[in-house]
Design a protein around this nucleic acid. Structure first.
Length: 278
DNA sequence: ATGACATGATAAA
DNA sequence: TTATCCTGTCATA
């Protein structure tokens, strides 16, 4: 589930479990062992996220940079009765060192990135990221300046982390459907007002994702109550290829775009034709 | 047991 | 564009 909301939640969870406390740091799997040894026993100052990136600050310019990639996960367990032996490939394990018998712990698995960084390295990375809708200081105009100047399809631009940080395949597909935007439309063909609406919606959707831990994009009137699966996890088009659109009933379409599956409704999101081509 | 697939990103061709 | 990495889960055999 790692889109931006997941990382934002994770930063909060890590803060609540560890911030201000000494932490045992280890790498049961071994791939982060050297850095873990360096950090072991030190105080975890805070955790923060920007888009899909997470940093855990240990002071003295030592940060752990984490990127979950497609299937990484970071499980945070608070006040466990006991800390269980690691299951599977645990790249990084944090355990509160000052909590006696009951202790909070966190296990990282499958991450694309788990590496020691300096604050300068963090800054260099952040400089390459677009605004994160979950950050209060995010400036949607920075994204807009990129979009309005690009002939690339808006579906690709939305997934480009240097345009907007934190959108993944689900928010991308769902946002475009909610705004009836053709995924293949060049960024430059959008109008500023449309982007303002999309950004505001994105902020609300992702904030909901942070609250609930789930991506919920379907408005109540479009929810299928009869559907057996969890109504909280319904989508308009994401991973619904061939199924009827929740709004108009047309079969949801899918196509690979830049190596990722794209989903859209050909009727709700009709093909954009530029005036220049007519 | 085996294979396909996944809410990601990068480097090489 | 393609290959590659990281790990877990689910469907199929």
């Amino acid at each position: 589930m790692p889109e931006g909301h997941t990382l934002h939640r994770l930063a909060t969870a890590l803060d609540e479990a560890f911030a201000g406390h000494p932490v045992r740091v280890s790498s049961p799997q071994g791939r982060f062992a050297e850095s873990a040894a360096l950090l072991d026993g030190r105080t975890l100052e805070r955790a923060e996220s920007w888009g899909k990136h997470l940093w855990v600050h240990f002071g003295h310019d030592d940060l752990v940079h984490v990127h979950l990639g497609l299937y990484g996960r970071f499980d945070v367990v608070r006040d466990a009765a006991s800390v269980p032996p690691p299951v599977g490939q645990v790249r990084l394990r944090l355990v509160r060192a000052d909590a006696g018998e009951a202790a909070s712990y966190a296990d990282l698995r499958g991450a694309t990135a788990c590496e020691l960084q300096t604050s300068a390295q963090r800054q260099a990375l952040v400089d390459r990221l677009g605004p994160d809708p979950l950050r209060a200081d995010a400036d949607p105009d920075l994204a807009w300046q990129r979009i309005r100047r690009s002939r690339a399809p808006i579906a690709g631009l939305l997934m480009d982390q240097s345009v907007v940080a934190g959108i993944g395949n689900v928010y991308r597909a769902e946002l475009l459907h909610r705004h009836r935007v053709d995924p293949f439309r060049p960024g430059a063909s959008l109008r500023a007002a449309r982007w303002s609406e999309m950004w505001a919606d994105l902020v609300a959707l992702m904030a909901d994702g942070v609250r609930t831990g789930v991506i919920r994009t379907v408005r109540p009137e479009h929810l299928d109550v009869a559907e057996v699966d969890d109504p909280g996890r319904q989508s308009y088009v994401y991973r619904r290829a061939g199924e009827p659109c929740r709004v108009c009933g047309t079969r949801v379409r899918t196509r690979e775009l830049q190596g990722r599956n794209l989903y859209w409704c050909g009727r709700c999101q009709p093909r954009f034709r530029s005036r220049a081509l007519q």
